[in-house]
Design a protein around this nucleic acid. Structure first.
Lengths: 142, 142
DNA sequence: ATCTTATTGAAAATAGATTTCATTTGTGAG
DNA sequence: CTCACAAATGAAATCTATTTTCAATAAGAT
C-alpha cells in the first residue's frame, strides 16, 4: 500500500470515521493515479480493486475526503467535476491543469500573496480565502 | 438597447447568423445583468423580456455566443456552469466577493500576469485561461 | 409578398448526482 | 473472541441539468 493512502487512513481514524474496505479502495486508487479523476473514472478504476463497490460510495467518499482536505475539487471544461489528491506538501497550493490530458501540476502561491495583500489594502476587504485555477496544455499535448 | 448588445447583434449578422427575437433577448439580458449568470438564472431573467422563450434556446444561444467569444464560461464551486459577458474595452477582470453581503468588487489582474508568465516558462505549459476568485468581508461587513 | 432554410419551443431522452432504505460491517465493550 | 450497535454500504428510485428530436415558425433574400 501507498504511503499517502496510509497517512489518509490514519487521518480518517483520527477524525472518528471508520476505515472500511470501500474507503480504503478509494484512497488507494486516488493515491496511485497521477492525474485528476472524475467520479466516473475513479469508479471504473476502483472496481478493479473491489468489484462490489458502488458509484454512490465513490461520491460519498469524495465529499468526505474533500471536507477533510485530502482531495481537491477541480473544475475543467469537459466533465466539469474532477478530483485530485492533495499530496503531502503542507502549504496552500494551486493547480495548473492540462486541458487535453488532465495532467495536474501544483505550484505554491507565494507570488500571489503580495497581489492579495495589495488588494486588501486598496479595497478594505478582509481577505479570507482564494481559489486560483490555471488551465493550459502541457508540453506533451501541445 | 445597450451598446454592447448592439455590437453583438452586428457581429452575429456578420458571421451569417440570424438576429432573432430570442437571441436579442439573451444578448440584452447578458449585457445588462450581473457579472455571471447560470443558464437557469439567465432563463428566469430573459423570460421577463420575452415570455415564450424556451430554456433550450438559452442553452443553444450560450453555446453559440461562447463559440463567437462574446461570453465566457466560468466554473464556480456551487452551480458549476456560469456565463459572463465579455465586455468591451475591458481586459480580463477578477472578482472579490464579500462572504457576508455578496457584494462584488472587480479588479484587473495585471499583477497576476507576471506570475503566470513565470509559471509558463518554468513548466512548459501553454497557459490558456485562468480563474481567480477571492472571498473575504467587505469594509461594511467587518 | 413569397420562398427557403435557420431557428425555435415542447417533449422525450440522456447524463450526472443525490436521497432513501434495508442490509452489511467496523469497532469498542464485555 | 464474541456481541451489539451505530456507521457505512449498495441498489433502486429520485432529482436536476443538459441535449436531442422534430414539427412549426419566422428571418432575410429575392
Amino acid at each position: 500500500m501507498n504511503t499517502l493512502a496510509r497517512v489518509w487512513e490514519d487521518q480518517l481514524k483520527q477524525e472518528g470515521y471508520r476505515v472500511t474496505k470501500p474507503r480504503r479502495v478509494v484512497l488507494e486508487t486516488l493515491a496511485s493515479g497521477a492525474v485528476h479523476l472524475t467520479p466516473e473514472e475513479l469508479y471504473r478504476r476502483a472496481r478493479r480493486r473491489h468489484r462490489r463497490i458502488g458509484l454512490v460510495t465513490i461520491y460519498r467518499t469524495l465529499t468526505l475526503l474533500e471536507r477533510l482536505g485530502m482531495v481537491q475539487r477541480v473544475h475543467v471544461e469537459a466533465g466539469c467535476h474532477s478530483f485530485a489528491a492533495v499530496r503531502l506538501n503542507r502549504g496552500h497550493h494551486h493547480q495548473l491543469v492540462c486541458r487535453t490530458c488532465g495532467r495536474v501540476e501544483e505550484f505554491p502561491d507565494c507570488a500571489l500573496d503580495s497581489v492579495l495583500h495589495r488588494l486588501q489594502t486598496r479595497t478594505g476587504f478582509a481577505i479570507e480565502a482564494h481559489h486560483l485555477e490555471v488551465v493550459g496544455r502541457c508540453p506533451e499535448c501541445r
